[in-house]
Amino acid sequence: MTLSRIELADWRAVHSWASLPQVCRFQTWGPNTEEQTRAFVATAVDAWAYSPQQRFAYAARTEGDVVGMGELHVRSHHLGRDHPHDQVPHPQASSSSRPDRDTAGPTGTGGLVSPR
C-alpha cells in the first residue's frame, strides 16, 4: 500500500464508499451524491496549492487502485501557550467551549478506509 496525493480522477473510488450508508453511519456527512463526492475531491486536490498549506489529502493505493484515503489538517502554524487551539477538548465538553470542527468532506478530520 502506498499513499499519494489525491487526484481528481480518484472521485469514483472515493464515491464507491462515500455513498454507502454503512460507511457514513457515524459521520456527520453522507451518504454522498456523486456531485458531493466530486466537490469534496476537487477541494481536497485544490488544497495542495494553498500556502501555507493546512490540508493534506492522501489516497491509499494498492496496485494503483484507490482503496481508502486520509487527511491531515493543520489548524494553526503558531501554537503557543496562549493560543486558543493549544488544547484538545474533552469529548464531553460543551459545544460552545470546543473549536469548530471541519465537516466539509467524507473524512472530516480523520481518515476513512474503504470497507472492501
Rank of each mutant, 00 (worst) to 15 (best):
S51E: 14
P91M: 09
R61W: 00
G68E: 05
H77Y: 14
R5F: 09
W48A: 15
Q54F: 07
T28N: 13
P31A: 09
L8G: 14
G105D: 14
L112E: 12
G30D: 02
F26M: 04
R75S: 09
T37R: 12
H78C: 08
V67Y: 00
T33C: 05
V14T: 04
G70P: 02
S114Y: 06
E7A: 14
G68Y: 05
H77A: 07
N32H: 15
A18F: 07
G111Y: 01
T43M: 15
F26H: 08
G80A: 11
S16K: 02
V67K: 03
Q54K: 15
V23C: 13
V45D: 00
Q53L: 09
D65H: 14
A39V: 01
Q92T: 13
H83C: 02
V66L: 07
V14C: 11
V113E: 01
L3N: 05
A47S: 15
R25F: 04
P84E: 05
P84L: 04
G70L: 03
D10A: 03
L8E: 15
W29I: 07
H78V: 12
S96T: 11
G105H: 13
S76P: 01
H77D: 07
A39F: 01
G30E: 03
L72N: 03
P21N: 12
R5G: 10
R38I: 06
E63H: 10
S19R: 08
W29H: 05
F26I: 02
S97Q: 09
T103A: 07
R12D: 03
V113M: 05
D10Q: 00
T109M: 15
L112A: 13
T28Y: 11
W17E: 00
P21H: 07
L20H: 06
A93G: 11
P91L: 09
S19N: 05
T37L: 09
G111I: 02
A57Y: 08
E34I: 04
